Amino acid sequence: MTTIEPLYDKNCLCPLCTTSFTTKKLRSRFIKAKGFDSDFFPFYEEHNPLLYYVNVCPACGFAFADQAEVRLNEAEKAILTEKISSQWNPQNFGESRTIRDSVKTYKLAAYAGILRHEKHILIAGLYIRLAWLYRMLEDVNEETRFMKLALSEYELSYSTGDFRGTQVSEIKTLYLAGELCRRTSKTEQAVKYFSKVIEQQSKTIEKNIISLAKDGWLKIRELQKA
């Protein structure tokens, strides 16, 4: 009887240099979430798909999120080639990854996204995942640093409205800004964001986010009382 392995090879075509390469992904049957932290950090029983979210071309170093549909124009190709590919030492992230391997892939994807002027909501998603990875490594300083970076991008996304047309709703953007404020000791700003979320409780179908905002607001109140 053939044993089904958790990881399989996915074929990719680099949008920058057109190199074909394979990278590991987790089969969905092996992905079993146990729960989520208050900033949506997922807990998995064993195999963690977060480690394989980013694809990295081994030839040129261009990195892109698994769900991204990347179409590069000539100006983007020029800046990516100059800033990334010309300085790239060929290396392969296409096999089984450690958490630290995965950290490198997210940083590469975030840098490429910044060079391409990607939407703030997409950069925020990479930064918050980096914070989660550092949480797994128990590196509080780096976790906090990337939470602050993610917060800045969520705030910019909300102010510019660039979350529209993505899978991240306005209410989720507001909630994550509030929760990241709370986690980085920006209490007054956290209360403001949580209040904006709670104000929408009669209009939204995302009732779980309303509950999370109320929990976050209560945690702040309890801390202030203490």
Rank of each mutant, 00 (worst) to 15 (best):
M147P: 00
G125Y: 03
H120L: 06
S152L: 08
I121P: 01
E138L: 12
E138P: 03
T144M: 11
L149V: 05
W132L: 02
K148A: 09
L151K: 10
W132D: 10
V140H: 06
H120Y: 10
H120C: 09
I128E: 04
A124T: 13
L133M: 07
A150L: 01
A131R: 03
L122C: 00
R145W: 05
W132C: 04
K119R: 09
E142T: 09
M136F: 05
L115W: 01
L122N: 09
T144V: 09
R145V: 04
R116W: 14
E138F: 12
N141C: 02
W132E: 04
V140R: 11
Y134I: 08
L126H: 09
H120N: 15
E118H: 04
E138Y: 08
F146A: 00
G125H: 07
E153Y: 07
N141F: 02
I123N: 06
D139S: 07
K148G: 11
L137N: 05
H117E: 14
V140L: 05
N141E: 10
L115K: 05
E118Y: 12
V140F: 08
E142A: 06
K119M: 12
L122Q: 04
E142I: 02
L130D: 07
H117F: 06
E142R: 14
A124N: 15
L149T: 03
H120D: 13
V140I: 13
Y127G: 13
H117K: 13
Y127Q: 12
D139W: 05
L133D: 02
S152G: 14
F146Q: 00
H117L: 08
L133H: 04
L151E: 07
K119P: 04
I114L: 03
A150Y: 00
M136S: 13
R135S: 14
H120V: 00
K119G: 00
V140T: 12
E153D: 10
D139L: 02
S152A: 14
G125E: 03
W132H: 11
A131Y: 06
E142W: 11
G125S: 11
L130H: 10
L149A: 08
L130R: 04
L115F: 05
L137P: 03
I128D: 03
H120M: 15
Y154S: 15
R135H: 10
I114F: 01
F146G: 00
L126S: 12
L137D: 03
L126C: 12
I128N: 01
I121V: 09
R129I: 04
G125D: 12
I114Y: 03
L130S: 03
R116N: 06
I121G: 09
I123M: 08
A131P: 01
H120I: 09
T144D: 06
M147D: 15
H117M: 09
I121W: 01
M136K: 09
E118R: 08
E142C: 13
M147L: 14
Y134A: 01
L151Q: 07
E143D: 06
